[in-house]
Simulated assay, not measured.
Amino acid sequence: EAARLQLRGLDTHVAGVEAYSTLGWFSDPLLSSMLRRNDEQLAALIFHELAHQRLYLPGDTAFNESYASFVEREGLRQWRSSRGLPEPDGQGRARYRQLVELLLQTRERLAGLYASGRPEAELRALKQAEFVRLRQRYRVLRDAHWDGDRRFDRWFAQPLNNATLVPFGLYDRWGGAFAALFERSGGDWGRFHAEVKALAGQPADEREAVLLGVER
């Protein structure tokens, strides 16, 4: 399929995933790839995928993934607390957020280029220049601000194109809004899930307005 899309001049990205949800249609699979995770990582994965099984809104990936990602983070925090473990180290998440911001900035600049009406050959050259710039900015972030933390080097070692940038921002787009909804629900999971379900039933523009409002 990727080859057919490439023949049409489209960027493609083929990658594996460690887990997925069937959204309640079948028993979710337990895959050997999950066993590479430690207990904490496995618990986070289960929280995330069970959230998808509980609620899934067709056609709104950012809503679905932000919701599941919040359930994962808060579920993991409570899981650790129930075992007398300290709060998770926020450094890794903070660095991931910085990386996502860097990638989203690149995506915005590329969108501006594609809307500029420049000749195709010029756009292709400018596109490649943006990816060179992205790699340079990442190295500065890694070496000057992250003490040489190389955890994202493998991702940057692959060929980069439009398709590789697509997932970023979807899993965290409404993270702050769902955190605010959870707080507004008094930390009660039942009330929280009911409020999210009601929100999912609203038209897309009204739903986004609510999310923007609570996020502030």
Score class of each variant (00 low, 15 high):
1 E>K: 11
4 R>W: 13
6 Q>N: 09
7 L>M: 11
11 D>N: 12
11 D>M: 07
11 D>W: 01
12 T>P: 02
13 H>A: 10
14 V>L: 14
15 A>R: 09
20 Y>G: 07
21 S>K: 01
22 T>R: 08
23 L>H: 03
23 L>S: 05
24 G>K: 07
26 F>S: 13
28 D>I: 02
30 L>D: 14
31 L>T: 10
32 S>Y: 12
33 S>H: 06
36 R>Y: 10
37 R>H: 12
38 N>K: 04
40 E>P: 03
40 E>K: 00
41 Q>H: 10
44 A>S: 14
45 L>K: 00
47 F>D: 04
51 A>D: 04
51 A>V: 01
52 H>L: 07
52 H>W: 09
53 Q>S: 13
54 R>L: 09
55 L>V: 08
57 L>R: 13
59 G>M: 05
60 D>L: 10
61 T>L: 11
66 S>E: 07
67 Y>C: 00
67 Y>D: 03
69 S>F: 07
71 V>M: 06
73 R>W: 02
74 E>P: 01
76 L>D: 00
77 R>I: 07
77 R>A: 05
77 R>V: 04
84 G>H: 02
85 L>V: 11
86 P>M: 04
88 P>W: 00
89 D>F: 08
90 G>K: 05
92 G>Y: 03
92 G>A: 09
92 G>L: 03
94 A>R: 10
94 A>P: 05
95 R>I: 02
96 Y>D: 06
96 Y>T: 11
98 Q>P: 05
100 V>G: 02
102 L>G: 03
102 L>K: 06
102 L>Y: 00
103 L>Q: 03
104 L>E: 09
105 Q>W: 09
105 Q>N: 11
108 E>Q: 12
108 E>M: 13
110 L>E: 05
110 L>N: 04
111 A>R: 15
112 G>L: 12
114 Y>A: 12
115 A>V: 05
116 S>R: 15
117 G>I: 11
117 G>T: 08
117 G>F: 05
119 P>N: 12
120 E>F: 11
120 E>Q: 13
123 L>E: 15
123 L>G: 03
124 R>D: 14
124 R>I: 12
126 L>S: 09
129 A>Q: 15
131 F>A: 06
133 R>V: 08
136 Q>M: 13
141 L>V: 09
143 D>C: 08
146 W>M: 02
147 D>C: 08
148 G>Q: 09
150 R>H: 14
151 R>K: 14
152 F>T: 01
152 F>Y: 15
157 A>R: 09
158 Q>I: 09
159 P>C: 12
160 L>H: 03
162 N>K: 10
164 T>N: 05
167 P>T: 00
168 F>K: 01
172 D>K: 00
173 R>S: 02
174 W>R: 04
176 G>S: 08
181 L>A: 02
183 E>F: 05
184 R>D: 13
185 S>H: 06
185 S>I: 02
188 D>W: 02
193 H>M: 06
193 H>Y: 10
194 A>N: 08
194 A>P: 03
195 E>L: 07
195 E>Y: 04
198 A>E: 13
199 L>E: 04
199 L>Q: 01
200 A>Q: 04
203 P>G: 04
203 P>W: 14
203 P>N: 09
206 E>W: 10
207 R>C: 11
208 E>K: 15
210 V>N: 02
214 V>H: 07
214 V>Q: 07
